[in-house]
């Protein structure tokens, strides 16, 4: 049985729908200062809810705001960024209003993140086992011996070859795939309810990537947690996520169940993205306009209007609503594409 099949098997346990969402992001806005001018809004009101057992994909190109969203959910927007508004509800609390001390108890324990570039994340001077065990010691309050036992079990769960020996390895002795597994082990050892994977598989080779994805799916299913899976690779989300949100210029422009997003995409930006993966020049010509001019931020109207082949005057004047086009299928577009 191959990795993707394992993935689909593990996913067959249906997400318990109808329940209140595990995490509910409401109108999240993040700004960056820009010299003397008005601050630049990089997240323009994000609404996204994820239920237990669900894997939601978040796709977008570089600069769309993916990492800013991941870090803002954890209460630590990157660099000089500032959370300018909105709420994040998690396990019954609005966590953005928590004190730093309270947030710190949540981060790593109930909410955790798997980052790309695992080697930069790991402390080069500490042995792998000690780094993983320290997560359990800090957050679960277990003693050193128990923490090491949990760490070893975690290394087994992430299917690192020869886990006993890897406990004593330093990060530089691990391959990229193994280092990524260690970072996943650290993110999951406290059995978090919500995991954010921020482009965690992009640096990996495809065969390793398939194994890591299967592993993440299995662990999420076994632990009954939920995941926000952030990636540039739209292809992964087609095989791996229950629902997919498409981020463009700090806004979710389309949100749909997996099948609907790929078989009946509604937002022109989504169509352009899919067209660029199709290797069909004809399709790309229909759905893109050449990127010759500098991109500009539109004060009002649709952010995509300047790049949209079907934009009308109204698109530059009025921000489109995030309207439902089908069951659970939303698009922020005045003229969503209809199929059939």
């Amino acid at each position: 049985m191959d990795a993707v099949e394992t993935m689909n098997k593990a996913r067959s346990a249906p997400a318990d729908t109808g329940k209140t969402p595990l995490i509910d992001i409401r109108n999240l806005r993040v700004t960056f200062p820009s010299g003397g001018a008005a601050p630049k809004t990089v997240l323009k009101g994000i609404d996204l809810a994820v239920k237990s057992g669900e894997i939601v994909g978040l796709v977008g190109e570089s600069g769309a705001g993916k990492t800013t969203l991941a870090r803002s959910i954890l209460g630590v927007p990157p660099g000089p960024g500032r959370i300018a508004g909105g709420e994040v509800h998690f396990e019954g609390r609005q966590i953005l209003s928590l004190s730093e001390a309270e947030f710190r108890r949540l981060r790593g324990r109930r909410l955790s993140v798997v980052v790309p570039n695992p080697r930069a994340e790991l402390n080069p001077l500490l042995r792998t086992g000690d780094q993983i065990a320290s997560m359990a010691k800090i957050h679960l309050g277990v003693n050193g011996k128990e923490a090491r036992r949990l760490a070893l079990q975690m290394l087994r769960d992430v299917q690192i070859p020869d886990p006993e020996r890897r406990m004593d390895a330093y990060p530089h002795e691990l391959s990229g795939g193994m280092a990524q597994r260690v970072v996943i082990a650290m993110a999951l050892i406290c059995n978090p309810a919500f995991v954010i994977s921020d482009d965690a598989t992009s640096g990996l080779d495809v065969t390793v990537q398939a194994q890591i994805l299967a592993l993440l799916t299995k662990l999420v299913a076994e632990q009954g947690s939920a995941m926000l899976f952030i990636t540039r690779d739209v292809g992964i989300t087609a095989h791996f996520c229950d629902r997919i949100a498409v981020l463009f210029s700090g806004e979710i422009v389309e949100l749909a169940p997996r099948e609907a997003l790929f078989l009946e995409p509604a937002h022109p930006y989504t169509l352009m993205l899919l067209a660029s993966f199709s290797h069909s020049p004809r399709l790309r010509d229909s759905w893109s306009v050449p990127d010759t001019s500098r991109r500009r931020e539109l004060a009002a109207g649709c952010q995509y209007a300047d790049r949209c082949p079907i934009a009308q005057p109204v698109c530059r004047e009025r921000r489109p609503p995030f309207a439902e086009n089908g069951p659970g299928h939303f698009a922020r577009c005045h003229f969503p594409v209809r199929h059939g």
Binding site: E264, A275, W287
Partner: peptide, 21 residues
């Protein structure tokens, strides 16, 4: 992809698809 993305007609407006220069 050509079937899914090629048959689509934008709603509400006449298709005014960009012609490549």
């Amino acid at each position: 992809a050509e079937r899914i993305l090629g048959r689509t007609v934008p709603s509400g407006v006449k298709p005014s698809l960009h012609q490549p220069t």
